[in-house]
Design a binder for these strands. Structure first.
Length: 179
DNA sequence: GTCCCGTCCTGTC
DNA sequence: GACAGGACGGGAC
């Protein structure tokens, strides 16, 4: 069902993408008609980033200067400069609960962390921490939606589904704390 | 520190 | 519609 919704969304919104180099490796951005669709975080090679980014996308077209201001912000971010990513996102293909979770997650300030239960409370479902974790696991736009700022209530990191796993999550948090 | 159960959403059949 | 699984929380031991 969800896959069908996602496929029809992609068919209706032909995508453009770009891969660029940052201090942490190659970063990929894919955008559809209504905004940013997907990101791929600090991959070791350009090819890996491309594979992760383009899986399942309909007829993607490479565009070197796609969302250039955002590219510059991301490069600066990995060099240790605080950044706020205000780019419009295309989340319509996701279930409403997931959209709520990801939208609330965007409000977490740079360098701050909150727990899964606090994020659950922000969307009015204080007991849905586990469901919040599920929603974050489906985050197609890591970094821009800062799901790395959501940790467990006992202070441990929890999981991270983007490229690099919990190591990347820890590195991102360390980077933001140093800024 | 570990176990267990409650909670709640999603995906699959 | 039912059921199982999951990036969790919190109490009991």
């Amino acid at each position: 069902m969800l896959l069908l919704r996602y496929k029809s969304f992609l068919m209706a919104n032909p995508t453009k993408y770009t891969i660029f180099k940052t201090k942490w490796g190659y970063f990929g951005l894919a955008a559809g008609g209504k905004g940013l669709l997907r990101t791929c975080l600090s991959c070791p090679t350009c090819k890996t980033a491309e594979c992760h980014l383009l899986a399942g996308l309909h007829n993607p077209r490479f565009e070197k200067n796609l969302l250039k201001p955002l590219q510059d912000k991301i490069i600066a971010y990995f060099e240790g400069h605080p950044a706020k990513f205000a780019t419009p996102l295309a989340l319509n293909h996701l279930p409403p609960f997931t959209q709520n979770v990801l939208t609330a997650c965007r409000k977490i300030p740079f360098g701050k962390t909150i727990s899964y239960s606090q994020l659950a409370a922000m969307i009015g479902k204080p007991l849905a921490s586990r469901a919040v974790g599920n929603a974050l696991a489906k985050n197609p736009i890591p970094l821009i939606i800062p799901c790395h700022r959501v940790i467990r209530s006992d202070g441990s990191l929890g999981q991270f589904s983007a490229c690099g796993g919990t190591k990347t999550k820890k590195k991102l948090l360390d980077l933001e704390r140093k800024c």
